[in-house]
């Protein structure tokens, strides 16, 4: 009798201790959760739930005012069938070339020529200037280029000064040049970014490697493909991610400079999504464009991320 009670009481004591320990752990877990609750609430309320709603909206035909009608995947079919929407996705493809591929190619080429510039005196000045376009508000960049491309702007004035009057035109108002002109702003924005990134990457290469290559009589070409390029893989992935995503998101520049015109020649998905939702009362269609754009950005980011060399993670 006494034995069993003693055993029982020791057991209850034991389970009591275990219980209080798990309770304490649960309490700690609960307290830690409180640290992230405000952030989580913000994220859910303003980002995550609305994103899911976008997908929901995209299945309706809705003008933003009256009742919405269910249309299934019709809005998505329209993206393929409607020429205006299809073109907007083609245009953004052109912008990727100007925002991403051209700046990266130019910056790699320059890095090949000046691979050791990072140790030069005055490099921090050059870095500051090259990076400057990145910190200027996109709206200000857009109005700046609007004035450069204007009929009597900097570009046409410069062309006339060197006798190329025949080339001058209203750059942003011409069907043939508007998209390229918008794209060139992206090139201007991103060349400096890529160059700063790549030069800092070369700066991390051990100088002995270059010296050994020189002693072996390697040409600067061989040096680039043997040492510089492999060392820059991480930076190239970063540059690709930054510039491709920024080109897919292009909105401010198109809104300020062309509003998608002339005609439809510079419309891009982000602009179509905005103008359909808030100007022309095609909310469902706008949502479907937003969904495709978002998925495109997520997929491309993931694909580019796979190029990242493993050892840097």
């Amino acid at each position: 009798m006494t034995v069993t009670t003693r055993v029982r009481s020791s057991e209850t004591r034991k389970t009591g201790a275990v219980k209080s320990r798990t309770r304490r752990r649960r309490l700690e877990s609960w307290k830690a959760f409180l640290y992230v609750v405000p952030a989580l609430a913000f994220s859910l309320t303003f980002l995550i739930v609305p994103t899911l709603q976008t997908a929901w909206y995209s299945l309706y035909d809705w003008n933003g005012l009256s009742a919405a009608t269910w249309v299934g995947f019709q809005n998505y079919l329209d993206i393929v069938q409607d020429e205006q929407l299809r073109d907007s996705f083609l245009h953004v493809g052109v912008l990727v070339v100007f925002y991403s591929f051209i700046p990266i190619a130019i910056a790699l080429l320059l890095t090949m020529v000046i691979s050791r510039a990072h140790s030069l005196r005055g490099m921090s000045f050059f870095r500051t200037v090259l990076f400057l376009p990145q910190v200027i508000a996109s709206v200000v960049v857009a109005t700046t280029w609007l004035s450069i491309y204007s009929p009597n702007g900097l570009l046409n004035t410069a062309l006339r000064a060197v006798g190329l009057d025949s080339v001058t035109r209203v750059w942003l108002g011409d069907f043939n040049t508007a998209l390229v002109s918008v794209g060139f702003v992206g090139t201007w924005l991103n060349v400096g970014l890529c160059l700063v990134l790549f030069l800092s990457g070369v700066g991390n290469v051990q100088p002995e490697l270059f010296e050994a290559a020189r002693l072996d009589g390697a040409s600067s070409f061989q040096e680039f493909f043997g040492i510089t390029f492999p060392a820059l893989r991480g930076q190239i992935v970063v540059a690709l991610t930054l510039t491709v995503v920024s080109s897919l998101k292009t909105f401010d520049l198109v809104y300020i400079t062309t509003r998608g015109g002339p005609g439809n020649s510079t419309s891009v998905p982000a602009y179509e999504a905005y103008s359909r939702a808030f100007n022309s009362g095609q909310v469902g269609s706008a949502a479907s464009v937003a969904v495709v754009l978002t998925l495109g950005i997520l997929i491309i980011t993931a694909l580019i991320g796979r190029l990242q060399p493993k050892e840097t993670e």
Binding site: V36, L47, P50, Y274, A287, T294, I297, L298
Partner: peptide, 26 residues
């Protein structure tokens, strides 16, 4: 350490990848 920290982190991190177009309309 707290229960679900990985999921919560992933949810919040999604904000880093989502373009404004994804959520601005609703």
């Amino acid at each position: 350490k707290f229960f679900g920290s990985n999921i919560v982190f992933f949810v919040i991190l999604a904000g880093l990848l989502l373009p404004a177009e994804a959520f601005i309309i609703p």
